[in-house]
Computed example of a mutant assay.
Amino acid sequence: MAASLAPLDGAAAKAPAPDIAACQPGGPCAHPLPVKVVVVTLFEIGADSGDAAGEFQLWKERRHLDMRIPFPQSYHDLYYDPKTQVLAMVTGIGTARSSAATMALGLDPRFDLTHAYWLVAGIAGIDPQDASIGSAAWARWVVDGDLAHEIDAREIPKDWKTGYFPRHTKGPNDTATPPDPSGGEMFALNPALVSWAYRLTRDVKLPDSPAIAAERARFAGYPNAQRPPFVLEGEQLSAMTFWHGKLLTDWANGWVDYWTSGKGEFVTSAMEDTGVVQSLTYLDRIGRADKDRVLVLRAGSNYTMPPPGEDAATYLLHENEGYAGLQAAVESLYLVGSKVIDELLADWGRYKDSEPR
C-alpha cells in the first residue's frame, strides 16, 4: 500500500495532494518534492505542537509546516510547506541518530534536494567566556570531540593536564600540526555563507527575561556571560558525552584551537552536528546534497561551566532539572534562523544557483 501524507489541520487539508502521495518512503518517485530549505532540529519535548517547545515546535507552528510526510526509516516524521518548500526534520539526540537521519533523507527519492540549503538549529551549552545563555552562534567550524585517545585521569603522567588527547598525537602536550581531518575530526563550513548569515542576523534582538538575567548575573568576572543574549560567530564542538565544568571547558577550548590550527574559537557544545555534516559531505559526492549550503546555528540553553563559587557537580545536576535558558534559546534559534530562511526565499531566483556572499 502506498504511503500516505497526513495533513494535520484544515489549511493543509485544502492543499492539493503532492505527487509523492503515491511514493513509498525511500522508494522511487517520479515527481519528487522540491525543497529549498531543510531545517534540521535534534529533539522535541512531548508533542510536536501545543505544549512546551523543544527545538522543532516553533518551526512547525510558525512556518506552517502542516504537511506530515511519513519517514519510517528514521526517528521522526517530516513536515513540509508546499508553498514555501521548506522541510523540517527531527533527527533524534546523538551523532548516530543525526547522521542516520540525514543520510536517510538525502537518499530518499521522494525529495529533490539539489538546490536545498540546510540549517541545523539546536540548543547547546555555551562558554561563559564568549556569550550568555539565549545567545545564538553561527559555527564556522564543526569539531568532533569523540575521536580521541583516553587514559583515566588517575593514571596519567604528572605533566599531563588531561588523559584525553587527539588521535595521531603522542599525548596532550604534543603540539604538532594537526593531520588532515579526513577521519571526521573537523569540518570547515562554507566561510562566505556563514559570514553572510552572521552579517544578516547580527543585529537581531533576541529574547531576554528576568530569569535568565538573574542567572547570567551570577557569572561575575565573565562579561560576555553577563550580556543580554546576542548573535555571534563561534565554533561548535560535537561530543556524545554531556560534559560540564571549568576544566572540561578549558579542554574544549584547547581541542577546537588544535583542530582549527588556532583559527577557531570554541563557543557551543552539543552532540549531533558532526554527524549531520559528515552525512552531507558524503551525499555531496553523489549530487544528493550540497555541502557548501550548510549552516549550523546553536543557541545557549545552559552554560558549559558553573558560576564562581559553585561546584561543577551541583550546577550540572541542577541544570538537568531544567535548563535556565531553554525557552530563550529556542526562540533565538527561530528568530535568527528565520531571518536567513526569509532572505533565501525572498530572492530564490538568485540563491537557487548561487550561494549568498
Rank of each mutant, 00 (worst) to 15 (best):
D152W: 06
G171N: 01
A153S: 13
D180Q: 12
V194H: 06
R167Y: 08
D146T: 02
N190T: 04
P157A: 01
A188R: 14
A153V: 14
A176K: 13
K205F: 00
P172F: 00
H168F: 15
S209L: 07
I151R: 14
A153T: 11
L206G: 01
V143E: 02
A197N: 07
F187L: 07
P191D: 02
W141V: 15
M186A: 15
F165P: 11
L193T: 01
D146P: 09
V204N: 05
P181T: 02
V142Q: 03
M186N: 12
E185S: 10
G184Y: 01
S182D: 09
K161S: 09
D203W: 03
R199F: 03
R202G: 03
G183F: 02
P157T: 00
P172W: 00
A148P: 05
T169D: 02
D180W: 11
R167F: 08
K158N: 07
L189W: 05
R202K: 12
D144Q: 09
L147N: 11
L147A: 10
L200A: 12
K205Y: 01
A148N: 07
P191W: 01
D203C: 05
K170H: 14
G183C: 06
K170Q: 09
F187T: 07
A148H: 05
E185V: 02
A176I: 06
R140K: 14
H168W: 13
D144L: 09
W141P: 09
S182F: 13
L206A: 05
P179K: 12
I151P: 01
A153W: 11
W141D: 15
G163T: 00
W196S: 04
P191H: 06
E150G: 06
T177N: 07
P172S: 02
T175C: 10
G145W: 07
G183T: 00
G145P: 04
P179A: 09
R154L: 10
R202P: 03
K170S: 15
Y198R: 05
K158C: 10
P179I: 10
E155T: 09
T162S: 03
V194T: 06
D159Y: 03
P207N: 01
D203N: 14
N173S: 07
G171V: 01
Y198L: 05
P179S: 10
R140G: 15
V194I: 08
P179L: 14
D144V: 04
G171R: 00
E155K: 15
R154V: 05
V194Q: 04
T175K: 14
T177H: 08
W160S: 00
